[in-house]
Amino acid sequence: MTSYSPTASVKFNPDDLPYINPRYDRRVCLITGANSGIGWFTALHLYLHGYIVYIGGRNKLKVERAISDITKEAKRRKQEKSYIYLGKLIFLEIDLLDLDSVEKSAEEFKKREPKLHILINNAGIMALPFSYSKDNFEIQVQTNYISPFLLTQRLIPLMSTVEKSRILYVSSIGHNLYFKRFSMDSTFDYHPNIIFTWLRYGLSKTSGIHYIKNLSLKYPNILCLAVNPGFVMSTNLLSHWTRLPIVGLFFWIFFQIFGFFFGVDIETGCYSTIKCCLDENLTSEKDNGKYFSTYGIEAEPSSIASNMDYAAETWVWTTTELNKRGHPIE
Rank of each mutant, 00 (worst) to 15 (best):
I118M: 08
H327Y: 11
L217H: 02
A74N: 08
T242N: 00
P301Y: 01
I90P: 00
P14A: 11
Y271L: 03
G87E: 02
I90W: 05
Y54E: 00
D309N: 14
K286D: 09
E280W: 00
G259N: 08
Y295G: 03
V53L: 00
S239W: 09
E107H: 10
T42W: 02
F179V: 02
D15W: 13
Q256F: 09
S147C: 01
S9K: 02
I38Y: 10
E103G: 10
D189F: 14
A43E: 03
A123L: 06
E313P: 04
V63E: 07
Y85Q: 07
S36R: 07
Y51T: 01
T152I: 05
I194R: 13
S186E: 03
M184R: 13
A226M: 04
R166W: 02
S147D: 03
L225N: 05
D100C: 06
I94L: 11
P229I: 13
H191Y: 12
S9N: 09
S165M: 05
F251W: 03
A66M: 06
A311C: 09
D309V: 14
I55S: 04
F91M: 10
G174C: 04
L116Y: 12
F130A: 07
N281F: 09
F188W: 07
F41W: 03
F260T: 05
K88C: 13
V170M: 12
W198Q: 12
G39R: 04
R154G: 04
N176H: 13
I246G: 02
L48F: 09
L150I: 10
I257H: 01
N13D: 11
E313A: 09
L89H: 05
K110W: 11
I139C: 12
I246A: 08
M126R: 11
L203P: 02
S204H: 13
K213M: 07
M308W: 01
G230K: 09
R76A: 14
A311K: 02
A43M: 01
T242S: 07
L92Q: 15
R77L: 15
Y85V: 01
L116I: 14
C29Y: 07
I253P: 09
Y132N: 15
I125V: 04
A8H: 11
S131R: 13
C277A: 11
V170C: 13
L97G: 07
T187Y: 13
C276K: 01
